[in-house]
Design a protein around this nucleic acid. Structure first.
Length: 396
DNA sequence: TGGGGTTAT
DNA sequence: ATAACCC
């Protein structure tokens, strides 16, 4: 069963995105391979194997754009972020456009290419969660990976359905779609393994790692060999609501505090909208920068601090000016990282809200009720009996 | 390489 | 606070 890890590298002019249909995968490949005669005999509902679907959306951003504007449907379409075509539809791919291609190269390859700016992820994020929520109707155990992939653990549902079946119905069950030799390995790789004399899981387990690496590349080789040993019992972990919200913008050059402040205000404004919609309250804010450097090691630096409780309380309301105190905090974080008296050159700014906490549902009469910050001011006219141990920015 | 996201250290 | 990894 393959749940995590990369897809097979694109091979022989084939792209991984052609499997538009969900793939059925079985857990414990090693066990299944160990007894080939019996590996399909699974006592209904009592098996320890799992049924997990992996749903991978094709060229997701491009699809969202085509749904938004159907006139784009039969044109070659690319989604642009800065000078990159981050994804494109199949029309564009036919004409030689690749994911993460330079806009210049893409236009050269395909002058008719229609480009849509996709730097604002709002609609993609919304659509992404709609897909996840749809899948959650089948089972609450849905794990997201990025915006366009979901893993759904359907073990329970399948078990229950099998139990309902009569024995004759059970016997009449057929499996349709692609079933690749009972291994979570794609068609192409299966063929190449066959050529190496690897026809079942045990062959793969005992095959020379070195030769396999030479043949398939170190990444694929090591991964599938681990899978052949049945490794990956990791559960499908329900993602639930996001644990952080961030907005970032890469820049050619930011070299003054004013520029930085303007960018930060822009990022913050979007974030506040998102936080407002979410309903929960972030208790931590982080500022991330990337400094210009010729090195490949394009590392980021960050500073974070707790959000003062009086600011947190005003977060969802929309009435009060939360921008001013937040910008204040963020600029302090900025100056903590960047010596503004010295020349600097930043190529990225990002603001992140994390440490999200649900609003209190504390009942009257409980300890929580009296300790709840949001109630401590309103219900007792600002006379706070407890000093919260927040680290405020003044402590810097 | 964008603009995100998670978990581990 | 950063790294490493995912898309």
């Amino acid at each position: 069963m393959e749940k995590r890890g990369v897809e097979p590298e694109p091979e022989g002019g084939r792209d991984e995105e052609e499997d538009a249909a969900p793939a059925m995968e079985r857990a414990e490949a090693g066990v299944a391979g160990g007894s080939p005669v019996h590996d399909q005999v699974v006592p209904a509902g009592s098996s320890s194997s799992r049924v997990i679907v992996h749903v991978d959306l094709d060229c997701f951003y491009a699809q969202v754009e085509m749904i938004s504007n159907p006139e784009l449907k039969d044109k070659p379409l690319g989604v642009q972020q800065k000078y990159l075509v981050v994804t494109c539809n199949y029309e564009a791919r036919k004409l030689g456009v690749k994911k993460l291609m330079n806009v210049r190269d893409a236009k050269e390859k395909c002058p008719q290419l229609v480009l849509i700016n996709g730097e604002d992820l709002t609609r993609y994020r919304e659509m992404s969660y709609k897909v996840t929520e749809l899948l959650e109707e089948f089972s609450p155990v849905v794990e997201r990976l990025g915006f366009d992939e979901n893993f759904v653990d359907l073990t329970e549902m399948v078990g229950k359905r099998l139990q309902q079946l009569q024995s004759d119905e059970l016997a009449a069950l057929t499996v349709s779609g692609h079933v690749y030799n009972n291994q979570g390995i794609g068609y192409k790789t299966a063929k190449r393994l066959e050529a190496l004399g690897i026809s079942n899981v045990r062959d793969l387990q005992t095959f020379s790692s070195k030769i396999l690496e030479k043949e398939l590349g170190i990444s694929v080789a090591q991964r599938i060999q681990k899978l052949s040993l049945g490794e990956d019992h990791s559960p499908v972990t329900p993602s639930g609501p996001p644990q952080s919200f961030s907005e970032e913008d890469s820049l050619k050059k930011c070299s003054s505090e004013i520029e930085a402040k303007n960018k930060i205000e822009e990022l913050l404004a979007s974030l506040l909208n998102r936080v407002c919609q979410d309903g929960r309250k972030p208790h931590t804010v982080r500022l991330i920068i990337r400094r210009y450097s010729s090195e490949k090691h394009c590392s980021r630096e960050s500073r974070q601090c707790p959000i003062p409780s009086h600011v947190i309380q005003k977060l969802g309301t929309g009435n009060y000016d939360v921008m001013t105190p937040m910008v204040d905090i963020l600029m302090k974080l900025f100056r903590n990282m960047v010596n503004v008296k010295m020349p600097f050159h930043l190529t990225l700014l990002s603001v992140c809200f994390c440490n999200l906490k649900a609003l209190n549902t504390a009942k009257k009469g409980t300890i929580d009720y009296y300790l709840t910050p949001s109630l401590s001011t309103t219900s007792r006219s600002g006379k706070r009996s407890f000093k919260m141990k927040d680290t405020h920015m003044e402590d810097f």
